[in-house]
Design a protein around this nucleic acid. Structure first.
Lengths: 207, 207
DNA sequence: CGTCATCCTGACCAAATGGTCAAACATTTT
DNA sequence: AAAATGTTTGACCATTTGGTCAGGATGACG
């Protein structure tokens, strides 16, 4: 049962516009760097009007954040315990990389929050995030035990996947500064590189 | 020839204290999130006194940033073109990881800046950073050509090393939230994991 | 000890910013 | 077409914040 109450269509539309604008602003300026005027401007509304839909700046921010965590973890839920280990992991990597390509602002929003100590979503990390990760780590470990995956620390494997894939969204400026391509061409290179990296590293030793 | 002019020892001491305090505050709050009062407080000085040593908040920030870039790139300069390829890369990874362990605030400072589009150090990325990276990429490529390193995209290899190592500093809260250890124990696990990962992935196919 | 340069501070300022509110304006509902 | 409900805004406010400044305190040094 969804907790959405789109009283009127105009209300739905404006809340939508505000969240969209806020994502833009928060992701590129951080929470403190963003101003209500910026958000209001980007949403095509006046500042008091924004505050008519949300009680405060912080409320907009946390709504964005909490609404996103789920989507953000989706790729991980797609890992099939009954599939081919290396294949499953590589396709997880590619799904995660795709999220960086499709939703860089969302990635940066999280990055900003976490780098600064995640003052507003610590609970979410300790709670749902940790349990999902532990669950997946369990699957990885069982694959290792069965000799179908190279023996590496499951948690750190997950970290490395997050790090390498999110890097292309979060540090986009740096990547773009070092590689030349204007287009998102480097995402395809990254996909090729990361597949190869993990395929080579994770293939179990032949018995 | 150093551009340091420590007119008096008190001047040197206070500038030092301010930069140290600023590193603390900027790295955990971001540029806009940090306030002069916070910095002054952390440095044990009054706000006007801070402004006596630095012309503005931004001046403190950029001085920090520019003074750090060099140190930050040092591990990369230690790569020996005449060494054993895989060994050189793995020890580069470990050096970089050590920097994350020893200087997490510095890492977060950069992360904050880059995630937000690096508005104040774009030149440094396009300039010295790019050339050093290209140089190292050249070395990697020559190793590949000689068949002493698995054929992977050199630039993306470098990105993956940055991503995986800096992750432990920048996303420390997340890592700590998922792993239990209070101590910096996970850095040792990470070292073991990353050595194994890159060793396995980069070993050239036997001829 | 006197004087000169350096160092430090309280008081102050202008701009920015999150947020409020009463009143005007729209839209539905009856 | 009222009445009721929902939406928008200009004017306003309190606080925070980067920064200034005149003068006082504290060295350094002959």
């Amino acid at each position: 049962m969804k907790n959405e109450r789109p009283k009127t269509r105009i209300q739905r539309k404006n809340r939508e516009a505000i969240l969209e604008a806020a994502l833009d602003v928060f992701s590129s300026e951080g929470f403190r760097g963003a101003t209500l005027d910026q958000i209001a401007g980007a949403a095509g509304l006046s500042k008091p009007n924004v505050l008519y839909y949300f009680p405060s700046k912080e409320a907009i921010y946390t709504e964005l954040l909490s609404g996103l965590l789920d989507t953000w973890l989706d790729p991980m839920r797609g890992i099939d315990p009954d599939g081919d280990p290396v294949g499953e992991i590589v396709s997880y990597v590619l799904r995660k990389l795709d999220m960086s390509r499709e939703f860089p602002r969302e990635s940066r929003l999280f990055a900003n929050e976490i780098v600064q100590g995640a003052p507003r979503i610590l609970e979410s990390i300790d709670g749902p995030l940790k349990s999902l990760v532990d669950e997946v780590a369990g699957v990885l470990q069982s694959w290792i035990d069965e000799g179908r995956l190279a023996p590496v620390d499951p948690h750190h494997l997950i970290f490395s996947i997050w790090a390498t894939t999110q890097h292309y969204a979060d540090f986009d400026v740096q990547v773009r500064g070092i590689l030349r391509p204007e287009a998102s061409e480097h995402f395809d290179q990254a996909a090729a590189f990361l597949s190869a990296l993990y395929r080579r590293a994770l293939a179990p030793a032949p018995k």
